[in-house]
Design a protein around this nucleic acid. Structure first.
Length: 458
RNA sequence: GCGGCCAUAGCUCAACUGGCAGAGCACAGGACUGUGACUCCUGGGGUUACCGGUUCAAGCCCGGUUGGUCGCCCCA
């Protein structure tokens, strides 16, 4: 026998949990559509050359390549001839942003801009197993892509959508942290860190501030990868602390820093924060945090990261940002965008871990039992009547002992059992048993649907 | 790619210093004569991950293999 098991880093659910998961997806979808976004789906696999455009070594390391048997044979034949092995032609997408870029570039002349799309699908990353990290997981992306330009207003709309969605999901307090890459990049550039690679390395270290502490970040920033002076690091850390202040923006405006990029960042951040408030996002939900940096290097302006207040350990469950040029690898057009993505699998995992998942009622309202062969036609007719009245109903396929059927219905989680045996037939009624409340009563067959529908919940 | 920890019944875990492999849950049957869940009783279930070593004796000690898990890198 083969041991039945799933690959580590995948999430598989029992039906009742799946129902809760499905409901979360529905809530997210409804929230996205409330703001006027349209759905798209893209294939799970793409041509490797499409995915590898963002090729910073890490991507290739985490990519799952896919290959048909025929292609595999060709590769092995080539290797046998001593030729260099090439990457397989196909690979599984590791996020939904790159496929979006490809999609927008491909259908550019058929899309209306700004293009507002949402996409809820699975993505794949070849990673070492770790708590709350998956190799296959759902991303629920929402993005706006503009042609040539994209108003800053959208940078405010994104967190407004997410805040609304998280509020609707109703799992407790969360914080959308917001920052602008231009601030840190401008500051680093003004501080003499000229190479983009060094700035990227610096951003990654700054991003870890909360996790590993000031001392270690200081050490890393002075290390060979970045090479900042002790004084520069000191000024930087002072700056980062501003983010916590309530008048942070006013303080940023007063800073003597003259770097042009930095000043633009301050202006952008200010108007985005103002617009977010104007959109009615409750204060405290979105919080300026100058230390969030985001590892991905294609972000150029506003960046977001969302944490569950009660579970900071799990990391970000929703993040994203603004990118000046989304699809530069696929088209000559300039397509700036801004977007956010909910890591639904991780979010679900954490909520389940914390026992915050609300039990979802079984979608089936009633189970119609069948105990005596000669009453089979009646049972089937009853089930059909209930279904035509709009109720979800499961019907026993063949006569079986009543305890067995009640146990089954209870186990599955169906609340009502409809019992119709010769006893009921003699009394000229149908018995309706509430398995949750452990009550039972006789009702007229014609009133059965109404009796189920009007049952008090709880 | 690098490091720590772990592996015993379907699941969660016990088993003293090396001395007969156990409990709860789950499952099956019964107590309950048209009625699930709750309660009580009974029962089936094991190559202690795999390979080797030490020992009178190994679930326990030693070496290896495989798998899992938690971190680092990176990230939802």
């Amino acid at each position: 026998m083969i041991q039945p098991r799933t690959v580590p880093g995948t999430l598989e659910l029992l039906p009742r949990e799946q129902l809760a998961f499905q409901k979360m997806i529905d809530t997210i979808r409804a929230g996205y559509e409330r703001f006027g976004f349209m759905p798209i789906e893209t294939p799970v696999f793409e041509l490797s050359e499409v995915l590898l455009t963002k090729s910073g070594g890490e991507t290739e390391k985490q990519l799952y390549f896919a290959q048909s048997t025929g292609a595999l044979e060709q590769v092995e034949a080539a290797r046998a001839r001593g030729e260099a092995a090439k990457n397989p032609e196909l690979a599984l997408r590791f996020d939904l942003t790159v496929p979006l870029a490809r999609y927008v570039a491909q259908y550019e002349n058929q899309l209306a801009f700004p293009f507002r799309r949402y996409q809820i699908q699975r993505v794949y990353r070849g990673e070492r197993n770790q708590k709350g990290r998956y190799r296959e997981f759902y991303q629920c992306d929402i993005d706006v892509v503009g042609k040539d330009t994209l108003p800053l207003m959208y940078d405010a709309e994104m967190p407004a959508v997410i805040s609304e969605v998280f509020r609707a999901l109703d799992f407790g307090p969360f914080t959308i942290r917001i920052n602008n890459r231009k601030l840190l990049n401008g500051l680093l550039r003004g501080g003499g860190i000229d190479s983009p690679e060094k700035r990227a390395a610096a951003l990654r270290e700054i991003d870890k501030l909360e996790k590993i502490g000031e001392a270690k970040v200081t050490e890393a920033l002075q290390g060979p990868e970045v090479g900042m002076s002790a004084a520069a690091v000191g000024r930087l850390l002072e700056f980062l602390k501003l983010g916590r202040a309530s008048d942070a923006v006013a303080q940023l405006e007063k800073l003597p820093e003259t770097d042009e990029l930095f000043r633009t960042g301050v202006t952008e951040l200010k108007s985005v924060l103002e617009a977010i408030a104007a959109l009615g996002v409750p204060s405290g939900t979105v919080e300026l945090d100058l230390s969030i940096a985001r590892g991905l290097d294609y972000y150029t302006g506003t960046i977001y990261e969302t944490v569950l207040n009660n579970f900071p350990g799990i990391g970000s469950v929703c993040s994203g940002g603004r990118y000046d040029d989304l699809a530069g690898h696929y088209t000559k057009s300039k397509l700036p965008g801004v977007g956010l993505s909910i890591g639904l699998t991780r979010l679900f995992f954490q909520l389940r871990e914390a026992q915050l998942l609300k039990p979802v009622d079984h979608p089936t309202a009633a189970y119609v039992t069948l105990t005596e062969p000669e009453l089979a036609a009646d049972a089937r007719a009853i089930a059909t009547e209930l279904r035509r009245s709009g109720l979800n109903v499961e019907l026993a396929a063949e006569p079986q002992k009543l305890p067995k059927q009640l146990k089954y219905a209870d186990r599955v989680g169906i609340r009502f059992a409809v019992i119709y045996t010769h006893h009921e037939r003699e009394r000229g009624c149908v018995a309706l048993k509430d398995l949750r409340a452990n009550t039972q009563r006789d009702v007229q067959r014609s009133e059965l649907a109404q009796a189920i529908r009007s049952a008090p919940t709880g």
